[in-house]
């Protein structure tokens, strides 16, 4: 049966319903477990095998030796494509994907993160000064 205005009842129902739009900055949708967001580095676990560096598609991660058995990671989140291959490659679980996806900033420098011993309790999430 062909007719015009097939959607009338549907749109009138929607008119009374709550909009489907998510009020993003005010209401944040929880991210599922295993979401591939910002990468963080646990410096105490790293053994410096550099397997993560080898397979990074965008060469965003650099591990450097700062002292004996101490390693520092520089992750350029502006280059990072969030594939989390480095997390898969790491045998010691020194790298971890978080569910943080709000990375926008006013400068690219805010995305260049450095993780080393000095940043205790792992809040090297803060950008390099």
């Amino acid at each position: 049966m062909k007719k015009t205005g097939k959607m009338v009842s549907e749109v009138l129902k929607s008119f009374m319903k709550k909009p489907a739009t998510e009020l993003y900055p005010f209401v944040k949708n929880p991210k599922p477990a295993g979401f591939r967001g910002r990468i963080i580095f646990h410096y105490e676990k790293c053994i410096g095998c550099k397997l993560c560096m080898r397979d990074c598609p965008s060469k965003a991660i650099t591990i450097t030796k700062v002292a004996d058995k101490k390693f520092e990671a520089r992750i350029n989140l502006d280059d990072c494509i969030f594939c989390a291959q480095c997390v898969d490659n790491c045998a010691k679980n020194a790298l971890e994907s978080t569910s943080d996806y709000e990375l926008a900033g006013l400068s690219r420098d805010s995305l260049k993160t450095v993780f080393n011993n000095e940043s205790v309790d792992n809040v090297a999430l803060r950008p390099e000064e």
Binding site: V11, F15, P19, T21, L23
Partner: peptide
């Protein structure tokens, strides 16, 4: 606004 609400948007 009416158009948006009928489309289940906020408008």
């Amino acid at each position: 606004k009416i158009y948006a609400r009928m489309q289940n948007r906020i408008g």
